[in-house]
């Protein structure tokens, strides 16, 4: 059973990486990162259940991960809104203003 859960989290993680590498929309990119973080959170809960069922450490950490991921996305969206007002586009492939 543990094997299947780990496989699930690995699959989610891979989908996340794929999304980060291919998404053109900045919001999509943030969602992909979110997927990766959640895959890691699933890992923690699953290991908690199967490896150390007497503790709750893994679950506690999963809750912290959710809160931190929310904080991260919050800052990300704030920056994105600011950027969107200036350039009217959320396309990350067009963020080339800093190349010299």
């Amino acid at each position: 059973m543990l094997f299947h859960w780990v496989l699930l989290s690995l699959a989610l993680f891979s989908v996340g990486i794929y999304g980060v590498l291919t998404r053109r929309n900045a919001v999509g990119l943030l969602i992909s990162v979110e997927l990766m973080l959640n895959a890691a959170a699933i890992n923690l809960v699953v290991f908690n259940r199967y490896v150390a069922p007497a503790q709750v450490d893994g679950q506690v950490m999963a809750i912290f991960v959710m809160a931190l991921a929310a904080a991260e996305v919050l800052v990300g969206m704030a920056i994105l809104v600011m950027l969107f007002r200036k350039r009217k586009s959320a396309d990350v492939t067009k963020m080339m203003g800093l190349r010299h």
Partner: peptide
């Protein structure tokens, strides 16, 4: 615009890095 652009790239890469880091920590726990 440049400040926001730099910050967004930093955030996207930083979040990616912290996801890798967290997955590694999860494996250590496992």
């Amino acid at each position: 615009e440049v400040s926001g652009e730099g910050a967004f790239k930093y955030l996207a890469m930083g979040a990616l890095g912290s996801a890798f880091f967290l997955y590694g920590l999860g494996l250590l726990f496992g």
